[in-house]
């Protein structure tokens, strides 16, 4: 899966949840990725370059990796 596209998707999710405040937004973004992303999408974003991720999205992906 193309990492640029997945990064865009993760950032978009995070941006739309950002109003919840950082902690809640990270949790909600993580939950969204868990609930709706296919395993290969999760694997690809976990394995890919995370430098393009916004802070909330990056924290959510890191939580996914944990």
């Amino acid at each position: 899966m193309e990492i640029g596209h997945l990064t865009y998707m993760a950032n978009q999710i995070a941006r739309n949840l950002a109003m919840q405040g950082e902690g809640a937004a990270v949790a909600a973004t993580y939950q969204h990725l868990s609930d709706f992303w296919d395993p290969r999408m999760k694997a690809a974003i976990l394995a890919g370059d995370r430098s393009g991720l916004d802070p909330i999205a990056r924290a959510a992906v890191e939580k996914l990796a944990a």
Partner: peptide, 18 residues
């Protein structure tokens, strides 16, 4: 137990070969 691909993700994954 894992969610599957949505249509646009299927197309992306097809281009990707998976």
């Amino acid at each position: 137990p894992e969610p599957g691909l949505r249509i646009p993700n299927m197309l992306d994954a097809a281009v990707d070969g998976s």
